[in-house]
Amino acid sequence: MFQKQRIFIFSGLFFCSIAFSQHSLFSLSDDYIVKKYSQRWELDSIDKHGTFRLMSYKPIYLAPARWSSKPNDQPYSENPDYSVDEAKPYNSIETKFQLSFKTKVIQGLFNNEGDIWLGYTQKAHWQVFNVKLSRVFRELNYEPELIFMYPVSFSFLGGKFRTIGLALNHQSNGKDLPTSRSWNRIIFNLGYENGNWLVSFHPWIRLKDDEDENPSITKYIGNGELNAAYTYNRHQFYAIVTHPFNHLKCGSMQLNYVFPLKGHLRGHVQFFDGYGETMIDYNHHQTTVGIGISFSDW
C-alpha cells in the first residue's frame, strides 16, 4: 500500500525543486532564482571564490512539529547486540532540524578544474514535548564527508550534465550499545540541470564493517539516492528518493514544499514515507509529516 502511495505522490508532485543560495551562508535572492550547479559547486571560472569559505550544503531547516505514524520505541538490529530490550514511551510528535555546511579545501586539481570539499550535515530529532523522558534528543545523526567534484558539460534532452564526482562518507548517531548505528560509504555523484530543474543521482558502495551494527541497512535504505528539484516563481519543491536495487518494497521518499512567508522567511512542509529517516530507524517503516521554516534548500 505504502509503495503504491509513494509512486502516486511522486508522479503527482513531479515538481521537485531547489533554490540553493551559495553566495554566502544564508543569503537568499529576493525572487528565489534557482541556483545552478556551477554556483553551488563553483564549477566555472566565473563562479570560483577560493578555498575555506563556509557555505550551506544540504537543506537547513527547523520543523518545530513533526508527526510520526509509528514512533520507533524499541529499535532492533539484525545483529542481536544492537537490539533494545525494553520499549520507551516516545511521543509521536517531536521537533526535527537539520544543519549542513561545506567548504572547499583544495581548488584546481586535474587540468585545474577539479575541487575537493569538506561537508558536514547534522540531523536532530528532539522529544521536546516529552516530559516523561526529560525532553531527550531521541536521535542525532552526524555525517562528515570528503567530496571531489569535477565539471562536465554534456547535452541531454534539452539540458546538460554538469558534475561528476565522488565522496567518502561516514554517518553515525554517536551512541553506545545497543543503539549505536553507523556506516561508511563511497558515494558517486552525477548532476543534471534543465531550466529550473536540478537532478542528481548518487549511487553508493557500502564499505565493509567488521563490527556491523546494522547489517541489512542497504536492504532497507537502499543502494543510492535520487534528488529532483524544481523552482516555480517564489515556490520551491524537491524530492529525495532512496531505493535498494533488489528489494522493491523498501527504500524511502521525502517530499518538500518551501514557500515564502515574509521577506526572507520561508515556510517548509515535509512528507516522508519509508525506511531510514534516521540511522536508528534504518529498518523501521513510518510515515511522517513536519511543518516549519527553511533557511537554505538544495
Score class of each variant (00 low, 15 high):
Y220M: 05
T278H: 06
H170D: 06
G251A: 02
K36Q: 14
N214D: 12
Y275L: 01
Y275D: 02
L198P: 00
F14I: 09
L99F: 05
P203F: 11
Q171V: 09
H49D: 15
E94T: 00
Q254A: 06
Q74K: 14
F154Q: 15
E94K: 02
D297F: 00
H268E: 03
S68Y: 13
S17T: 07
N189V: 03
F101A: 10
M55E: 15
V136K: 09
P215Q: 08
K175I: 00
Q107S: 14
F201E: 05
D115E: 07
V241Y: 15
L118M: 13
D209G: 03
E94G: 01
Y142V: 04
N79K: 05
K70I: 00
N246Q: 11
V105W: 09
G119V: 02
E211D: 15
T179S: 11
F10H: 15
N130M: 04
S45A: 15
S100T: 02
V289L: 15
Y57I: 00
N130D: 10
G50P: 10
S68T: 09
F8N: 11
T103G: 05
W298Q: 11
L265V: 12
K35C: 03
I221L: 13
F8S: 12
F271D: 01
Y275G: 01
F161P: 00
Y232E: 09
D176K: 08
F129K: 03
S216H: 11
W183T: 03
N194W: 13
H235N: 15
A239R: 01
F137K: 04
I93F: 10
R206G: 02
I217M: 12
S11I: 14
P244T: 06
R181Q: 08
Y230C: 12
K249V: 00
R234C: 05
D44R: 12
S252N: 13
S92K: 10
G119L: 05
I106D: 07
